[in-house]
Design a protein around this nucleic acid. Structure first.
Length: 425
RNA sequence: GUGAGUGUAGCUCAUCUGGUUAGAGCGCCGGUCUGUGGCACCGGAGGUAGGGGGUUCAACUCCCCUCACUCACCCCA
């Protein structure tokens, strides 16, 4: 029998790494709490319909990247390939649009059948926020500020914010027509791939990496020149809000979101630490989404951020998040009787809120002390036959190496006293 | 999905153009030190060389298939 391995594009997060994840999760929860976004958790699979209706047929996600299967009841089920659509589904299902604005955040895994590479997995993790019920440009800016706070909190300093507006359906259709006209006139120099895009989704030609395409794009019509008065005012509002918070950004008329439901503001946060998959977060406004899912016309802004990419970029930046000491007190037993005597002390220390452990293998004391020091424990409590016969334990300060004998009954108090003293120091 | 590269111990890597029992450092375990740590020295465990097939007297080394990872494209978080 072959060895079993994690499926392609998935990976295990082992304790050393999960500490980093826990630290990141704490940052996310903290930032979202400060911006007053409430957490929503939705199932990891949904009716396939949820994604087809919102993400749109003709997008890569729907056409070839979804994990879809028929369950035993004959229903078509899909492992969620992104989280915005499920959140909207839940919002409508529970009539959450009664009091607006509605500010939600989520984090968790999503699934796409893609060819894996650095920063791209078949099961990945995303954190995102959605703010429903306001078209105010200040809300767009709030969402962007929140995203940047999470990125900063993760320990990533080297990042860029690219901003654009792709207008509303009205002005975008005028623009799209001009763009198609322009590319058709130059179709001879267009790359093969972009000719296909011209048919399916012409705006995506704008982020083509082909050199010839790039030259063509440089002189192509720009969305920003086609925005209607309302969209222009909104975009100005977003920019001035960002400036009011001293948030630096660059206008990039070529960023286009992949999903159908975006309107007006679109943005991207990138980190050079990620190679080709440089986008850490992407988002924007989607004023037509809720309606497209059968809800009342409701504006919304939000973003999705790749937690896996955040972890990679933070690691590359040398962030030490999650590397804190893992042990407060190491209990050291030298024989079976000592081990038995330590049980109540171990339990009491843990109950008092400290991290405490004992080495059940009863290795030689020097090995146990070495292990304790390696785990960062400042204190050790040692019980062997000497101590036991005297009804005492040895408490050793692993930093100063100072030792003291204490009556077993007083060990707990002594430990707590010393650790509290360290904490306040 | 397309193109290219890589795959030897838990980790990082050696093994020259195919040639005896595949090595090192780190880590792990033990000992020097029947009970005091981050050092030093000594010893040990751990490999069907990703997996399968083929060529050959002989394969870690060459060929094919397969799996996985990496890089780029595509796409996106």
């Amino acid at each position: 029998m072959k060895n079993l391995t994690a499926p392609r594009g998935t990976y295990d997060i082992l304790p050393d790494d999960s500490r980093r994840w826990q630290a990141l999760e704490a940052v996310i929860d903290g930032v979202c709490a400060r911006y007053c976004y409430g957490e929503i958790r939705t199932p990891q699979f949904e009716s396939t319909e949820v994604f087809i209706r919102t993400i749109g047929e003709g997008t890569d996600i729907v056409d070839k990247e979804m994990y879809t299967f028929t369950d035993r009841g004959g229903r078509s089920i899909t492992l969620r390939p992104e989280l915005t659509a499920p959140v909207v589904r839940a919002v409508l299902e529970h009539s959450m649009l009664q009091s607006l604005p509605l500010k939600l955040y989520y984090r968790g895994p999503f699934f796409r059948y893609e060819r894996p590479q650095r920063g791209r997995f078949r099961q990945a993790h995303q954190v995102g926020v959605e703010c429903f019920g306001t078209a105010a440009p200040e809300a767009d800016a709030e969402v962007i500020a929140l995203a940047l706070d999470v990125v900063a909190g993760a320990g990533i300093r080297d990042r860029h914010l690219d901003l654009n507006s792709i207008g509303c359906p009205a002005c975008r259709s005028v623009y799209r027509k001009a763009l198609v006209e322009y590319f058709e006139k130059n179709i001879a120099t267009l790359s093969e791939q972009s000719r296909v895009r011209l048919q399916t989704n012409p705006m995506r030609i704008l982020d083509s990496k082909d050199e010839a395409d790039q030259r063509l794009i440089a002189t192509a019509p720009r969305v920003l020149d086609f925005l209607c008065a309302g969209c222009t005012a909104h975009f100005d509002g977003v920019k001035s809000s960002l400036r009011a918070m001293s948030i630096e950004f660059s206008i990039n008329p070529n960023i286009v979101r992949g999903l159908d439901y975006y309107t007006r503001t679109v943005f991207e946060i990138t980190s050079p630490a990620l190679g080709a998959q440089s986008a850490v977060a992407g988002g924007g406004r989607y004023d037509g989404l809720v309606e497209s899912m059968g809800g009342p016309p409701t504006p919304g802004v939000g973003f999705g951020m790749g937690m896996d990419r955040l972890i990679i970029a933070a690691h590359a930046a040398g962030s030490s998040a999650g590397d804190e000491r893992q042990l407060d007190v190491a209990f050291v037993a030298l024989d079976a009787a000592g081990l038995a005597a330590l049980v109540p002390l171990l339990y009491a220390t843990r109950t008092a809120g400290f991290r405490a452990d004992v080495d059940y293998t009863l290795r030689k004391m020097d090995k146990q002390l070495k292990g304790a020091a390696a785990r960062g424990a400042p204190l050790a409590v040692i019980v062997g036959s000497d101590e036991l016969s005297a009804g005492e334990a040895t408490i050793q300060d692993l930093v100063t190496r100072e030792r003291a004998r204490v009556a077993i009954a007083k060990v707990e108090d002594e430990i707590v006293r010393r650790l509290r003293h360290r904490e306040s120091a």
